[in-house]
Amino acid sequence: MEHKGQTSPLGNHTALVDFILIGFSDLPKLQGLLFGLFLIIYAFILMGNSLIITITKVDPSLHTPMYFFLRNFSFLEICYVSVTLPRLLADLWRKYGNISFLACAIQMYFFLILADTECFILTAMAYDRYVAICYPLLFPVIMNNRLCVQLALVCWTAAIPIHIGSTSVIFTLPFCENNQMNHFFCDVPPIVQLVCGDTFVIEMLTYVIAVLVVTIPFLLILVSYVKIISTILKLPSATGRTKAFSTCSSHLMVVTLFFGSGIIVYLRPKSTHSSGMDKYFSLFYTILTPLFNPIIYCLRNKDVMMALEKFLQKWIMVWFITSKNPSYT
């Protein structure tokens, strides 16, 4: 495909008009299958996370800090996956992946903000579990509505100023004539690979931000769970230990999947980077985490399953009555 760009006075540097997202074009025979698969996944993510939001909102028994953060997390997953998957579906359908310079910058900016927000919300959820298990008597006082709302606001807004600066820095760098990106969305590592000249400063900036928004939250979660597990093991009742573990296991699974794949992509040494491997690793934290969220929190959570059962029974009854009596309102 013909490259679009204008050569600048700097020689091989180019004022790019667009990028080409290679995506999964290296699997030409699987384009149709991948389109159908990702479309089904996207629909499931939207419906599954929307169902969690609805259930935790309408069922009074789920009006607790734990489910308040789960509701925020599910809404975040919908926003997060909508930054990348619709674009990927369009590219698979059209069989080419041109994206304008501005659209690429916007996609990367919102992706980074929402990814950081996910780190922060997962940390807030860990803190909620820490207080609930380690300080159960003080839990209603500490995790009051005001603190929950404040934590949520910080989680949703903290990354906005960080990535205004980092995105601006990245997209003002000089790019080489090669505009082909071996990825399915505009992420930092594949974008930096297209930069001409010394990338040390932007790489260090990326590492610093990754440490602040990925490593530190991950360590806080880790410390919380060390204390949680230590407290649980001291419980005299086996039933109490099982119940306490069950309230944390779902969150711990999501944390492992999201942070594990993110750390591999962003914090491993540059010498071990492979754009092809990064592309597949990123599927874990961009698509699989939002996909598994409703599965993990519904199938492994008795409270959510009971609320889901009541919700479905109510709507089946309403449907049955209205189908038998169309005049019923």
Rank of each mutant, 00 (worst) to 15 (best):
G48I: 04
Q6I: 14
D128W: 01
K243N: 13
L288E: 04
V208S: 05
T54V: 11
S50V: 03
I99L: 08
L235F: 06
A124D: 12
M306Q: 10
D91W: 07
P290D: 01
I316H: 11
I113C: 15
K270G: 07
V141Q: 11
T215A: 12
V214N: 07
V213D: 03
A244I: 06
L220F: 15
Y127H: 06
I52G: 00
A238I: 05
A307K: 04
S100D: 13
F259E: 06
V255F: 02
F75K: 06
T242A: 14
S224Q: 02
T256Y: 11
L92M: 10
L137I: 05
Y130A: 00
L51Q: 07
K95Y: 12
D128F: 00
T239N: 08
V192K: 02
T215H: 04
D187M: 04
T56C: 13
R241Y: 02
Y280T: 02
I316G: 00
N145L: 08
P269L: 11
A103C: 04
I113R: 04
D116C: 12
V213G: 00
S271A: 13
L257Q: 06
F259H: 13
S8P: 00
T56S: 14
S261V: 07
F320V: 09
F19L: 10
I287K: 03
E118C: 14
T117W: 08
H63V: 09
I263E: 09
T322I: 05
D116N: 14
G36H: 07
S8L: 15
Q193F: 02
V131P: 04
D187Y: 09
I264H: 08
W156H: 10
C119V: 03
L205Q: 13
L308G: 04
L37D: 05
L151F: 05
M306W: 02
F320H: 10
N178G: 00
S323A: 13
Q107M: 10
Y127F: 15
Q193A: 15
T157I: 11
W315C: 02
L51Y: 10
A126G: 11
S282G: 02
N98T: 11
F218I: 03
L205D: 09
M108F: 08
G260W: 07
G240M: 08
S275Q: 13
L30E: 14
P294Y: 03
I41H: 00
Y266T: 03
G262L: 10
V208E: 06
D59P: 12
A15H: 08
F68K: 05
I121S: 05
T247M: 09
T329Q: 15
Q31P: 14
D198Y: 02
L27F: 13
P174E: 12
S271D: 12
F292R: 01
L92I: 09
S261D: 03
S168T: 12
K324G: 10
V226F: 14
E118L: 11
I40C: 12
K324Q: 13
G197K: 06
M317F: 12
S323M: 09
F200Y: 07
K227Y: 11
V223I: 15
P65H: 05
P136R: 07
S230R: 13
L92Y: 04
C155T: 09
F184I: 06
